[in-house]
Design a protein around this nucleic acid. Structure first.
Lengths: 349, 349
DNA sequence: ACGATTTGGGAAAAGGTTTTCTCAGAGAGA
DNA sequence: TCTCTCTGAGAAAACCTTTTCCCAAATCGT
């Protein structure tokens, strides 16, 4: 019989340890450690020899052992209840971006509005000695279904309701709304309306209020915002309400929408009525959800909440907290940005 | 002067260790460990006393120390290049679901089609001694921009191109297409066309081929699929091509679309032409992207790739690999599922 | 009552790294 | 030549838990 070929072992040999490097270089582990970390005193020749040996052997320090000793794991947890990631993913990208260069990895935990699951995840993260936690969600006026107020690690809240006294980062919804409405005003629009989501959302009020303020500042007529749902269907309905009444002169010439889906519905409904966008009516959305904003006809001008920046800031804030530097508690609002596409037209000559 | 109130320390006292529990219970750490893990021999009374002490003190074992010893970190990495998470997030949800009950946490790493970033993340994960890695992406016929073929830890590929000899899980696109076309046939549709994405995608061919097969099996006419982009705009264009020519009798009575955005475009374009959906033409999409499928008018019947299940399976497969049980290498295709809404009509009486 | 076995529990090593001490030898100053 | 100060490097503790081995006391059998 021929000797059977050994099946390739699924897991290769164990990683090379500092002890092995030290042995290969003919020094003690202490010296090896110091050589690699630029600590201690030794001849440049010794240090270089050890470094070379480590390189040759492909040595990488065991992060677990380091963490155990340093009481710092270079690991943070990102807690979210935003299953589809509309908001958390851009945020996560920013967080990750801010942290990866510091060698920090991110545990993503979806708690799904389930307290038990949240508890489970938080305990798992704590057991794994995360250096800190970033809490995020799908709306900024609700808590996650889990209590993070008395943890042994710092917590930063981003795009979710912070606990009192904690560090919170949210988008400046009022500012975003200003951006949109002022853009309309600048383009010469005069009858500007606001169609937004459910009354139960804090951002709905913040944006509506800012909208009203800007209109007043410019001496333009204000009307009650139309509140409904975050859906295309509501955009259609709203158009029916706004443009259903006869008398073209009463019609708005601009609609600022609470999100891009509403705006999409509004634009489609306007086209169905033969009302031209942007010639007759300008439309601005919110969220700058590119896949929607770019698919509307014409492409949608929209307010971007800069969630990636928000995530970056949250990551940096957490890093600073982890480093022992106290951060100013309270809610910090980060500016939005208007992404101009073609649903508003150009300024009058 | 009144004594200043001490500012609350940002980080509370360090976690309680096994040593402290042992001291409080008047036993050695060895005994304490055994008591808590159900190991060793001791009187039930002693064991219970230690357990109670631990509970009182809020002891939780340091996962880092455990991992160091067991050579198992209860941590896995999820590598993706799907920045917006259309595909990775449902998948991630499934993975997480499969793993959380085993106390396994997931590092989410977005590598963004950037080899350097990929390298960075993989090394960080390896340094942190992840038990395994799940690789995923935004299309199943492309590799991630990072080499995972000779890692010391098991790797499972889900919804991305696996390395040869590795374990790969993907959706059964051909099966999904069959589901859609057979649904049309069952409803009595006879002139069924296929509008899909760019030719460069493997799934485009798989689905088109399956589509052709089903039509042949039923003796129905086949036509070349229309290949374009994954966009609404292409859906509009395709309708122009299909329904532009005069002679209503040559028109299709069913359009199977390569994704929901195309389907959305198709439905909108049909309505604009006064062609009724589903009465005149049935439409089926792919991906079951709920936010799109539910916003089309009428709501879109669509093929769901069961990405959460895919994620679950990937998680379980990885767990099994980590546990040392060899898994069958090669690509396993998981079935799709047809989500029926209202864009196809009801079966004829 | 004496040896054999069981019982309850502790000591110590292991896991990989960092850091603080310690120490032998070398060079310098007198 | 004798002491003092560096210099280069190692020993060992520490981080926290698990597990193997070991030992004394108690129980059992005869």
């Amino acid at each position: 019989m021929s000797a059977d070929a050994e099946p390739a072992p699924v897991s290769a040999k164990p990683p090379v340890t500092l002890r092995e490097v030290a042995a290969a270089a003919g020094v003690s582990v202490a010296t090896a450690s110091k050589a690699l970390n630029g600590q201690g005193r030794m001849t440049a020749e010794t240090r270089e020899r050890i470094r070379e040996t480590a390189r040759l052997l492909g040595f990488r320090p065991n992060s677990l052992a380091q963490s155990l000793l340093r009481k710092r794991s270079f690991t943070v947890g990102l807690l979210t209840n935003d299953t589809y990631g509309r908001f958390s993913l851009p945020l996560m990208a920013g967080v990750s971006d801010a942290l990866v260069d510091n060698g920090v990895s991110v545990f993503l935990c979806n708690v799904e509005d389930d307290t038990r699951l949240g508890q489970l995840h938080v305990e798992a993260m704590l057991d794994k000695r995360v250096d800190g936690i970033i809490a995020t969600g799908k709306r900024i006026d609700r808590h996650l279904p889990v209590d993070l107020s008395n943890l042994r690690v710092p917590v930063v809240y981003a795009f979710t309701q912070p606990d009192p006294g904690a560090v919170g980062l949210v988008s400046d919804d009022a500012g975003g709304a200003r951006l949109a409405v002022e853009h309309f005003v600048r383009l010469g629009r005069r009858r500007i309306t606001h169609v937004s989501g459910p009354e139960s959302f804090a951002v709905v009020h913040a944006r509506a209020e800012a909208c009203r303020e800007v209109l007043q500042e410019h001496g333009l007529p204000t009307a009650e915002p139309l509140l409904g749902a975050w859906s295309e269907a509501w955009g259609h309905e709203a158009v029916a309400k706004l443009f259903g009444k006869a008398g073209r002169e009463g019609w708005p010439d601009a609609v600022f929408c609470g999100n891009d889906q509403i705006a999409r519905g509004v634009i489609d409904a306007l086209r169905e009525r033969g009302i031209r966008v942007p010639e007759d009516v300008g439309v601005i959305g919110f969220d700058n959800w590119e896949i929607v904003a770019e698919a509307t006809r014409p492409p949608l001008t929209s307010v971007d909440m800069n969630l990636a920046s928000l995530g970056r800031e949250a990551g940096l804030a957490l890093l600073s907290l982890v480093g022992g530097r106290a951060a100013v508690p309270g809610i910090r609002k980060l500016p939005c940005r208007l992404v101009v596409r073609q649903s508003c037209g150009s300024p009058p000559e």
